[in-house]
Simulated scan of single mutants.
Amino acid sequence: MSEALLKHPRLISLEGGEGAGKTSAIVAIRELLQARGHEVVLTREPGGTPLAERIRELLLSPHEEALAPETELLLMFASRAQHVREVIRPALQRGAYVVSDRFTDSSYAYQADGRGLDRALIEELERKVVGLKPSLTLLLDLDVREGRARTSGRDLWPDRIESEQDDFFERVREGFRKRAVAEPERFRVIDASQSPTAVGASVSSAVLQWLESSA
């Protein structure tokens, strides 16, 4: 794969911490794009293909053996490489919009800011393994404690990431916010403390403005 990092005009990602409401926001984006006559492919990370979903299980299932941060990062990029090759690139090549629940920004926030891994390593993997970045990234920003309260009781057994402590998620949130400040032309920050209806409206408005500015 080429090492050039292409910002693709039909690739949209949603980012945010636990409980931020990305699932509902993605539905709002799909409805807006479909109403304008576009094919829309919804997908998620880690996952998106049968093999990538199996890697997701490895990443999220609690283990008796602790998962090293480097292992977590490389599994994320193994899943992402399969996802890009099998789902994202083919959809973009046929003219569809791709909306992904998480993309490489999550690796910077979770593995660099959250785990303390070398950002340069992630940058190299992004160039050599992924080769794509979204033209629009919607960051659903939410207070960590509120997000944890929303997800409390959602699953009988929290997954490996959900079981982390608040200080980890504070670092992740700050990582996302720093990326949004560094790339204001790509990021739109949405206040996810609003009601689901209000968040959906804010997301739709941001996407519509982006579409009109890109026309």
Rank of each mutant, 00 (worst) to 15 (best):
A81K: 13
R30F: 01
A96N: 03
K7A: 13
V98Q: 02
H63N: 14
L125C: 05
R89D: 01
H83I: 04
E45R: 05
G48K: 04
A4C: 08
F176L: 04
V87L: 11
A215S: 15
F77L: 07
L138Y: 03
K22Q: 00
L142G: 03
Q34A: 14
P158G: 12
E15Q: 12
G21Y: 03
L211Q: 03
S193V: 04
R119W: 14
A180N: 03
G147W: 01
E126W: 02
R94K: 15
D159S: 01
E164C: 06
P90C: 06
V181R: 14
A20S: 10
V207L: 13
L139T: 02
R94T: 12
Q82C: 12
P9N: 12
E72K: 10
V27E: 04
P158S: 14
S205R: 15
L6R: 14
R186A: 14
A206V: 02
L73Y: 07
T151V: 11
D166F: 13
A192M: 10
Q111R: 10
G200W: 09
H38N: 14
P50R: 11
G131T: 07
R188C: 08
T104I: 15
A4G: 09
S202C: 11
S24Q: 13
I190H: 03
D155I: 04
V98Y: 00
R171D: 04
F77H: 03
E72C: 11
G48V: 02
G37V: 10
E123I: 03
F168K: 00
F187I: 07
R56M: 02
E164A: 14
A28Q: 08
E164H: 13
L51Y: 14
E31W: 11
R56A: 10
K128N: 08
E31F: 09
G131F: 07
S152N: 09
L92S: 11
R148N: 07
R102Q: 02
E164G: 04
Q111H: 08
G175P: 01
S100T: 07
D166Y: 12
A4R: 12
V129T: 09
I55L: 10
S79T: 06
D105G: 02
V130G: 08
S61R: 09
V207K: 08
D191A: 15
R56L: 06
G147A: 12
K22E: 01
A4D: 06
G131E: 01
M76R: 00
A96Y: 08
E126Q: 07
L74F: 11
A81D: 01
D167V: 11
G19K: 00
E126R: 11
D143C: 02
I26V: 09
T71S: 15
L211S: 08
H63V: 02
R160Y: 04
E70S: 15
W157R: 15
L136D: 00
E86S: 11
G200R: 08
L14G: 06
G153R: 12
R56I: 06
R119V: 10
G95C: 11
L140F: 14
H83W: 05
I29A: 05
E162I: 09
P9C: 12
V207S: 09
V189H: 15
E57D: 12
A109I: 03
Q93Y: 03
D101A: 15
I29V: 06
G21E: 05
L11Q: 03
L59Y: 08
A215L: 15
L32T: 09
R54K: 15
A182N: 10
V130W: 00
R115A: 09
L58G: 08
T151W: 05
A206R: 02
L51S: 11
A192Q: 07
Q194F: 04
H8G: 10
T23G: 07
V130Q: 07
E72M: 06
